[in-house]
């Protein structure tokens, strides 16, 4: 187990997938040099036939992923920035997410679409989206968002091995974080949450970059005599409701953190599920901390103002305990 940056771990997961199956091909804009770093160096090992620099034709490339998967390959497509998914929405939502269903299950579409996601570094409104709720809504797309280097690798391998379209979202702001990562091929199963910290008083479900925020707050509150359980769903669709509901049944309190905007976001889904499936065990109203319903602003202080930060999360946890 060595230490690795999150983007490097993601790339290593991709490399494992490419090593074990020659049908895995990679498409990306500047895939050889890799703007985000998540495909850097792969061309040296796998060559330009399998690592393809693509023209700026995102919609067509996403559709090519569907056709290539249907015709026997396992394409992995780097969309670079998750905001760019919007230009591909027909091919993603109407084709990739629906072809298996519409065909009555005739086809498997093993294709992965990945991109850096979320606001970071004043990239402003058109490069800072957290669009995962949009993808969850399509039903036919699995959606994953790792928060640690280890999960970045394990989820990538699992995503490529999965026989369905998977949208893999890499938190832009976590790309440079380091952590221990197992050597060799290893998989983090899709659809399985992990308990990042055990606790008894309140359940905090945290997505992507907010996991670190939740852990920092949990540590702080530990000093104040509050025991916080932190759950990282890792896969946002289909998500591991069992693990979360089991925790809520013990703690009776739920706080959900999400980088996406509030309305119809993942936090809304988790809280609705708790209210309908675990109402009897709730001892306080669930609380959510999300981005507000506005586009991401440019100025650093404005961007920071919208972030799910320790201050907001601590206040939310205390509110659920009040």
């Amino acid at each position: 187990m060595g230490d690795s940056y999150l983007v490097t771990a993601m790339r290593d997961g991709l490399a494992e997938a490419m090593r074990e199956d020659p049908a895995v091909v990679l498409f990306g804009e500047d895939a050889d040099r890799s703007v985000m770093g998540s495909t850097r160096g792969l061309i040296d090992e796998f060559g330009p036939d399998r690592v393809r620099n693509i023209p700026l034709s995102e919609a067509t490339i996403v559709g090519c992923g569907v056709g290539a998967a249907a015709a026997g390959l396992r394409p992995v497509i780097d969309l670079m920035v998750s905001s760019f998914f919007y230009i591909t929405m027909d091919q993603l939502a109407n084709q990739a997410a629906k072809l298996r269903y519409m065909s009555g299950g005739q086809v498997q579409l093993p294709v992965v679409y990945f991109a850096a996601t979320g606001g970071a570094g004043s990239a402003a409104a058109q490069h800072s989206e957290s669009p995962h709720p949009t993808f969850i809504q399509q039903a036919g797309l699995k959606v994953v968002m790792p928060s640690t280097p280890s999960d970045a690798k394990g989820l990538m391998l699992a995503a490529v091995r999965d026989p369905n379209p998977v949208v893999y979202l890499q938190e832009a702001s976590l790309g440079g974080t380091r952590g221990p990562v197992p050597e060799g091929p290893f998989e983090v199963p899709l659809g399985k949450a992990t308990v990042r910290r055990e606790g008894a008083d309140v359940t905090v479900v945290a997505v992507g970059r907010t996991v670190r925020v939740a852990l920092a707050v949990a540590e702080e509150l530990h000093g104040e005599g509050v025991s916080v359980e932190v759950i990282d769903p890792r896969t946002l669709h289909p998500w591991d409701a069992d693990t979360v509901m089991e925790s809520v049944a013990r703690t009776g309190r739920l706080v959900v953190l999400d980088t996406a905007r509030q309305s119809c976001g993942f936090a809304a889904e988790v809280i609705a599920t708790a209210c309908t499936e675990a109402f009897g065990s709730l001892t306080a109203a669930p609380v959510r901390v999300t981005a507000p319903d506005v586009p991401m602003p440019f100025a650093p202080q404005l961007e920071r103002h919208l972030a799910v930060d320790e201050h907001k999360v601590k206040a939310a946890v205390l509110r659920s305990l009040a």
Partner: peptide
């Protein structure tokens, strides 16, 4: 127009395979 990229991708797979 939805089927055009899909055929293009299938053609890529054919070429690659």
């Amino acid at each position: 127009g939805g089927g055009i990229p899909i055929a293009t991708g299938a053609a890529f797979a054919n070429q690659h395979l």
